[in-house]
Amino acid sequence: MTESTNDPAAPASTPPAVPPTGRTPLPRAKRRVPLWDNARFACIVLVVLGHAIQRLTYDSQIALGLYLLVYAFHMPAFALISGYFSKSDAPTRRQMARILTDIVVPYIIFEGLWTLTKWLVEGRANPNLTQPSWTLWFLLALAIFRLVLRYLALLRWPLLWTVVISISVGYLPNIDSTLSLSRTLGLLPFFTLGWWLKHHGILERLDLLRRRRWWVRALAIATFAVTGWVCWFFVETWQAIDLRLWLFYEDSYADLAGGAWWGGLVRLALMAIALVLSIAFFALIPRGTHRWTHFGQYTMYVYLLHSFVLYPFRESGVLRDLDPTWIWLPLVIVASVLIAVGLATKPVRTVFRPLVEPRPAWLFDDPTLAGREGRRSDPTGSRRPREDPSRQGKRPRA
């Protein structure tokens, strides 16, 4: 998402400056905030890493500890970023169309691809759009997030209400993975928090988008170090209580804790931990522009495509019984970064753009809704100039 930096308003008694030509000054170009692109790319690397090391966790306690650390915060952080760039205003027709073109249509396309893949490889398939395959649940979550945000924004304490909702749904076994509703409502507080921070300009007021104090970075590193040690040192305890399943925000407390009354308190504690780790994560994200920063504009390509890259390794058993861990785990970490970078490169985007960013004019009564945009953006809110305007065949909307 782009950001603008406006000068303070001049006093009312001071007339606005008039250019020497007498023409109306052009609006100032919006400036990207590198922090968000850096954070998006870091988040998507963690997504790939979490999926890549999953098979290693069966045979390595170190890998399981890292897995738990990643899953403790990476999707809450992604939801927070998405909420930061979401608006609660009444949507325009184009914005409503974008939910279909950016979320719903890609979901249907990739759900169809996964159904075909499972049928070809495993000899079985379940073509059920209400049960998202693997990573596709987050697309449905983003769609639901956007639909309910404008109603949450009407409430006096939207954050409090979403926390209550997140905790309460765990007590309702009928709210399950259908349409990814359980995970969506479970992560709703983080999405709403992102919107709330932007709506109230909290980060701008505290100048957190540009500055990183050394003691904040030190505290963030210490936070991850302590949490990582806890994840590893008590790993047998976490295995015994199936902490991994708790971090998915998917199963009910009846499945996780036999319906115990304290299930909601566990979720509340995990939400607090996710928030602390997310804050530490953002504190460590570089504020400047780097060679890899622009990859953060294409996270949806990585998100939708990386599972097809990992699928053969996960299902073939190649990632099982790899020993010693101190060699294979770093290799998998490096491979995860390379996969994320590779899937965000221009050749991959060019080939898969019709699948990841479809613009089906035939779907709409007004065909121009499919391509009426001057900038592309992915569902997490990253806006960017169109790389090749001639591809659209239409003039950008003023």
Rank of each mutant, 00 (worst) to 15 (best):
E111D: 10
P91I: 15
G201K: 01
F41I: 04
L179T: 12
R314W: 12
T184C: 08
R94G: 07
L268T: 00
L268Q: 02
F85W: 08
A254K: 11
T184Y: 04
F248K: 09
F282Q: 03
F282N: 00
P396C: 13
S390K: 06
A79H: 00
P360D: 13
A361Q: 11
T380V: 09
S88D: 15
W261S: 13
P367M: 12
H294I: 15
F282V: 06
F281Q: 00
T380M: 01
N126K: 14
P25I: 00
D7H: 13
L284A: 02
P396F: 10
L46I: 12
E111C: 07
E204Q: 13
L197C: 11
W161K: 12
R40S: 10
E315L: 14
P347K: 04
T92M: 11
T24G: 11
A260R: 07
D176S: 14
R391Y: 03
I241T: 12
Y67T: 04
P20R: 14
L305A: 02
E250S: 14
A97H: 03
G50S: 09
L275K: 01
R124K: 15
Y151V: 14
H51L: 06
R397F: 12
D365F: 09
T289Q: 11
S336P: 04
L305T: 04
L322A: 01
T92C: 11
P367Q: 15
L80Y: 00
D255H: 13
S180D: 00
G259I: 14
A225G: 08
F138P: 06
F313Q: 09
R32Y: 06
R244P: 05
V341W: 07
F281V: 03
G22S: 12
Y107C: 04
R359T: 05
P312L: 03
P367A: 15
F295K: 01
N38R: 08
V164G: 10
Q54H: 15
L265R: 09
E250A: 08
R359S: 07
V318N: 02
S390G: 02
A340Y: 01
R40K: 12
D365G: 06
P389T: 02
S180I: 05
V33T: 10
H51E: 06
Y298D: 09
F248T: 08
D37M: 06
R383E: 02
A29S: 08
R213G: 15
P76T: 04
W326H: 14
D89F: 10
P347E: 07
P347A: 02
P11V: 03
H200Q: 06
A42H: 00
Y303E: 05
V266P: 07
M96V: 08
A29N: 10
L188W: 02
V148Y: 09
V105D: 07
T192E: 08
G194M: 01
A77V: 03
R212C: 03
R359Y: 04
T162R: 06
G83S: 03
I273V: 15
W229F: 10
T325Y: 05
A260P: 06
Q61L: 13
V105G: 09
Y311H: 08
W238D: 01
L113G: 00
F233W: 13
H200Y: 04
A39E: 07
R211K: 08
L363S: 07
F364I: 02
F282P: 02
L159D: 05
T101R: 02
T178I: 11
Y298R: 09
Y249P: 00
D207K: 12
R287H: 06
I221A: 14
V163L: 13
S60H: 02
